[in-house]
Each structure stands twice: as C-alpha cells, then as structure tokens.
Write a protein that binds this DNA or RNA. Structure first.
Lengths: 119, 119
DNA sequence: AGGTTTGCTCACTTTCGGGTGAGTTATTGA
DNA sequence: TCAATAACTCACCCGAAAGTGAGCAAACCT
C-alpha cells in the first residue's frame, strides 16, 4: 500500500536512474514557475514589499505575485517579516542564504542563455 | 499589427523590468520540461541511441522520449547523426558544446538541491 | 511467411499551471 | 462617512503540457 505517487512527481528514482536524475527533476520543477525567479531577484535587489514588487512587474497580477511569494517562503528562499499584522499590513520579504546561492546559479543560466542567443 | 504575443511567452520585457528578467524566463521554460535534462545527461554520458535511452528510463515512454530528443536537437543541445536512414534505422545522438556548458550549470543546480535537502 | 528490431509520428485524453474577477480585513486621511 | 491602502485568498476558466494507444517503414532472422 501507499506506493501512491503524486502525479507529476519524479517517479524515475529507481535502480537504473543515474546520479543526476531524481532531484534535478524536482529542483527544475521548483524554480521554473513563471515569474518566480524574477521575483526572487527583485527581492534580493532590495524590493521588499508586496506593493513595490507589484509595481516592478506591471504585467504580473496580485494573485500570481501572492502565490509566488508564498512559494518562495515555503521553499525558504525568502523570509517573511511581519512588521504590522493588522491592515493596512506592513510586511517585508528578505532573501535567505539558500536563495542567494540559487540566484548565483540562475545568473549563470542567464549568462548561458545570452551567450547562445545569436547562435 | 503583429504585436501578437504567443501565450506563455515572457511579456514582461518592458522598461521597468531589470536585467535578469526576460531571457531567464525563456531559458527556464526551455530546460524545465520533464525528463529533458536527464536525457541530455544520459546522452552526454555516452548513451547515444533511442533504444538504449529507452532502457535507461523505464518509466519514460517512447513518445515523450522522441519529443524530448527532437526538442534537444532543435535547441542545438545535441546533434542527431544518421548512420542508416532506412529501417531498422541507426541513429546516434551526441551532445554539443552548448549542451555541455548547460549541463555544468544543471550540475550546480543539482548540488544546490542536494545541499538543502536536509534543511 | 511472419515475428522482431529501430526510431519514430499522429491523434486523443487527462492533468496541471497561469491568469482573471471578486472579496476580505482594518486603519488612516479627506 | 467613505474612499483608499496593504496584502492577500478563493473560486473559476482555459490553454498547454503530459501521458496513452495505435500504427508505420523496411530490413533481418527463423
């Protein structure tokens, strides 16, 4: 019983799978949602509040921004600092060490992408 | 006319978007399809044929494998070498320099993922 | 003559993620 | 008193991605 697998989860983690498999699947899955890494980058560069993030990405809706931020908090890529609980709330987001290390790699990915744009 | 945007394409490439935006979106989109990076890794480690790749990932279907391989070829991450055109065909896949450089970054991502598995 | 192998493609269904509209809380300022 | 503000959440829809079933070409082996 309970070899139930959430659909979409990496299920190739068997004997024949090599070292790179399994976790890389999951990491890619975690970082690829639209806007997520851009929001992380913005938070890292000092944009701490919901409303200022909102203005930074005019074509990103409140709903998706909220979703991405809660994902980032869940992933421990950013910390949520509650300065004032009751409305109008005051909340700051701050990038964690884990998030910073990820951003470095994302930046490499970005550079790689730029390098091969012409090719 | 033709400021038409393919849905799902990065549309945040406006004045307010910062350097990291735009292209990173597209790179992530390109590398995140399920199995794609694992297949790339396998090809890089010397598994060159459709049938052997198939055996390497028992839970990956022929159809998806075919799709991923054609994507990888389109992205110029692997080259398709046709040794024998007519059935039973003989075709080899070989990783490109572009693909190898990407794999290095994917490997960093993998290490990052492993580092924070416990946390 | 018929089964096997190699490397796929097409059509279809199901599942998932992005995006939208509306609603909420409670305080401050006009 | 009423609008505005900050930071969300919920319910829904729709298009795209994932996965499934079937079929195909042509040579080789029995």
């Amino acid at each position: 019983m309970s070899s139930q697998l959430k659909p979409g989860t990496s299920n190739a983690c068997n004997i024949t799978a090599l070292s790179l498999a399994c976790e890389v699947n999951d990491v890619l899955r975690d970082i690829s949602p639209r806007w997520k890494m851009q929001v992380l980058h913005k938070v890292a560069s000092g944009t701490k509040q919901f409303s200022t993030l909102k203005h930074a990405f005019p074509s990103l809706s409140d709903q998706i921004l909220g979703k991405r931020l809660s994902e980032l908090v869940n992933d421990k890529l950013v910390d949520k600092i509650i300065l004032k609980e009751k409305a109008p709330k005051s909340i700051h987001y701050m990038i964690t060490d884990k998030g910073l290390e990820l951003l470095k790699i994302i930046d490499d990915l970005h550079k790689w992408g730029l390098k091969y744009l012409s090719a």
